[in-house]
Structure formats: C-alpha cells, structure tokens
Amino acid sequence: MPVDPRFVVWCAACGWNADPEAGVRRQDTGLFERVRSGMARRHGEQLYAELARAEPGAGRPAGGARVLASLLALLVHGVTVALAAAGLWLWLLTARWGEGLQPVIGVLLLGLAVLLRPRFGSTARLRKSETVLERSDAPHLFALLDEVAAAVGTRGVDIVVVEADANAGVRTHGLRQRRVLWLGMSLWAVLSPQERVALLGHEFGHYAHGDTRHSLLVGSALRTLGEWRYVLTGFPTTSLLEQAAGLLTLLPRWGVQGLILLLDQATLRSSRRSEYQGVFRK
C-alpha cells in the first residue's frame, strides 16, 4: 500500500484511522484508563453483534445494572452529605467548647463537601462562557432538530452550543434537566445533509433509548467522581512532601477509581445501546 509520510496511514491494523492517537494514549494512560478502554471496546463489540443479529431483547439494559448504577450514585452523593454533616457537627457543636482542632477540621470538611458537591450544570453559565444559539437565533436549525428528535422518539434540545472541535454531543444541565446539543462546526461543515441528519439521530438516541449517564442522579454522580479524582490526583509529585501526600491519598484514589469503573460498567450497556439503536433505526 502506498504510504505518504505526511499523513497517518489508513489500514485495517490501525482501525482505518478512526482513532490514530489511540496507541499513543494507551502508552501514556494508567492502568484504570486502559481497563476502562478495554471494557468499552469489548462491550461495544458484543452489543453491536447482538443488534446486528436482531436477537430478541438485543441490547436491552439489564434492570440490575440500572439498580446498581442508582445505588452507586446514591453512595457517591451520600459521601458528600456525610462530609457536610460531619463538618457541621464538628464546627457547630464543638466550637463553643473550644476543643482544639475539631472546629478547624469541621471547617475543612465543610469546604471539602462544597468542593465535591454534585454538579448539575447551568445553562446560564453556558450562555456566559460559550457561543450559544437559542431558537430565535436559528429557527431553521431548531426545526430540523425537532424533526429528527421526533423521528427518534424524543423531544429536541433547549439550546445549542457551537464550538470549533470536530465533535458533537448532548448533555443535560440543571435540576430542570434542560437539554443541550454541543455542535462542532469543523465536523458539521464537512457533512452532507443526510450525514447531518444521521449525526443528530445518533445523538438524540441518548435521550430516546434510556442512557442512564444522562440522568440527573447518575450523571451528577459521574461528574462528582471526576471532581474527586481531580482532588486526589490533580497535584504534582516532584518534591518529597508532594510524594508523601500522594502516598497518603493512594487508598482513597484507588477507591475512587474503583467506583468509576463500577459505575462505568453499570451504565456502559445503556450508553452503547442508545448509540447503536440510533444507528439501527436510521
């Protein structure tokens, strides 16, 4: 096969250039990320094979997985509530007695609870920090979104965030679960009209086919776990003091990584199912 050194080689071994940097990431990422990537790949291949054979109940998320995901999400939020309650108790009940460091520890626990609080997102913040389209800004685009969403079996989005990346995705923000479509213009510009419809159908499938990762309970727990991981690993380890801090956070860090893996496994089937069913319905 002719090879041009200026470009990434397209071949079966590299997955036809679908993800040319995957090999680099596998070398640079840690054990947990490699395990997550392997689980996602195996699960996706299995689910695709089931849907392609049109087996009865193919790709249907197991009820036990949904229950497990909800219990894990409640556990995550319960830890935050426990930190806040312990902080309040140490600060309010013992501060008046002046018992050493207990009030200080209480304040630290309250601060940690605030840092690790559930993140539900806010469309108001998106409007301040991103390029946002409302219905009045792009009525034809929103008419297309509503039409595709109705064909998939769901409703459209409330706002569209326009960005430069070659990507697209849907999210939910706030307690009211307002729907947001993230649309990368560098991807949108190169697609044909029917390819754009297919892309939108794929993304709306997350809403239509029960992707638990977009639910209020589980979605906020995943974001909270991301904050936990950042707090425990988001510092350098160059000095001896920093290395000692890294050792002290080793067990909590592994515990958080384990929770992420469990929640990933519990929600993986519904997430992949929503994507593949969007493809198979088109």
Rank of each mutant, 00 (worst) to 15 (best):
E227L: 15
F7V: 08
V180R: 05
A208E: 09
E227H: 14
S274Y: 06
D264A: 02
A266M: 10
A18V: 01
S37F: 14
I260R: 14
H140C: 02
L133Q: 00
L31S: 01
E195T: 10
L183G: 01
L261M: 09
G64C: 12
R25P: 07
L199V: 06
P252H: 11
E163N: 00
L47H: 12
G111E: 10
E163C: 02
L133E: 04
A62Y: 06
F142E: 07
Q257W: 13
T154M: 11
W228A: 06
K128T: 09
T29F: 13
R6T: 08
F32P: 01
G30T: 08
R119W: 10
T94W: 11
A245G: 13
W254Y: 12
M1L: 12
V107K: 13
L110G: 12
L240R: 15
F142S: 12
R135F: 10
L248Y: 05
G226L: 05
V218G: 00
E33T: 05
R96P: 03
L241R: 11
G184W: 02
T249Q: 04
Q194G: 10
R135C: 00
T123D: 08
Q265T: 15
G44C: 01
L262I: 09
A221F: 00
R36V: 00
G44Y: 03
R281T: 15
V9I: 12
E130Y: 12
A245D: 06
Y230V: 12
L88A: 05
A18T: 06
A82F: 13
S239D: 05
K282D: 15
L88K: 10
A54M: 06
L259S: 06
W89Y: 15
L112Q: 00
P193A: 05
M39G: 06
L141N: 09
V81H: 00
S274T: 10
G64M: 03
G210S: 08
A22Y: 03
A166I: 03
F235E: 01
R36D: 15
T212A: 14
G23I: 09
L175I: 11
W10Q: 14
R196N: 08
V107H: 07
A149S: 10
D137C: 02
R269E: 09
L232A: 02
E195D: 13
F7D: 05
A69K: 03
E55M: 03
G38I: 03
A65Q: 15
S215A: 04
V197E: 15
L225N: 10
L240G: 04
A22R: 12
A82M: 14
N17F: 04
L262F: 10
E227G: 12
V104L: 15
E134Q: 12
L93M: 15
N167Y: 10
E242F: 04
V24N: 07
A52Q: 14
Q27F: 14
Q177M: 09
G169T: 09
S192E: 15
H77N: 13
T94Y: 03
W97A: 15
P20A: 13
G23C: 02
A138V: 02
V197H: 14
E50Y: 04
G219P: 05
G106S: 06
V170P: 02
L250I: 09
G44R: 05
W228Q: 00
R117W: 11
